[in-house]
Design a binder for these strands. Structure first.
Length: 110
DNA sequence: TTTATGACTTTGC
DNA sequence: AGCAAAGCCATAA
């Protein structure tokens, strides 16, 4: 056997790293795609974070991941956008009049 | 391989 | 402040 030891590719590492980070978001806090992308080592891959969440296993608190404006861009994946908002509210997260999370108070920084 | 698409972000007007 | 266009990176066809 040659030495073709195939380690995890960079994208797989990125994938699992994001999953772990999201699962570590404390209750009552939210984070952004950009933040996750940076923490994962790819500051320009915020779109990939969204893709990962879409393909990620259920049970992940992906409702705590919002875009830079605090908007629930992934609400459609929950089937009911109001449900996602209620989930966050039940965790103590506040919204402004535009359905946006108060990032000043609840943004989670790694 | 090339093209189109997306749970995004940044920049310019 | 809000909208449009460009930039980025990986996947699907």
């Amino acid at each position: 056997m040659t030495e073709r030891v195939k380690q995890n590719s960079a994208k797989e590492e990125f994938y699992f790293r994001i999953l772990e980070l999201v699962s570590k978001i404390p209750k009552g806090k939210v984070t952004t795609y950009k933040n996750l992308a940076i923490a994962g080592g790819k500051p320009r891959s915020s779109r990939l974070v969204g893709w990962i969440l879409n393909k990620s296993p259920l049970g992940l608190p992906c409702h705590r991941v919002v875009n830079r404006n605090g908007e629930l861009t992934g609400k459609f994946a929950f089937g009911d956008s109001q449900m996602m908002k209620k989930l966050l509210e039940s965790e103590g997260i506040e919204f402004d009049s535009k359905e946006r999370v108060n990032l000043t108070k609840h943004l989670w920084i790694f």
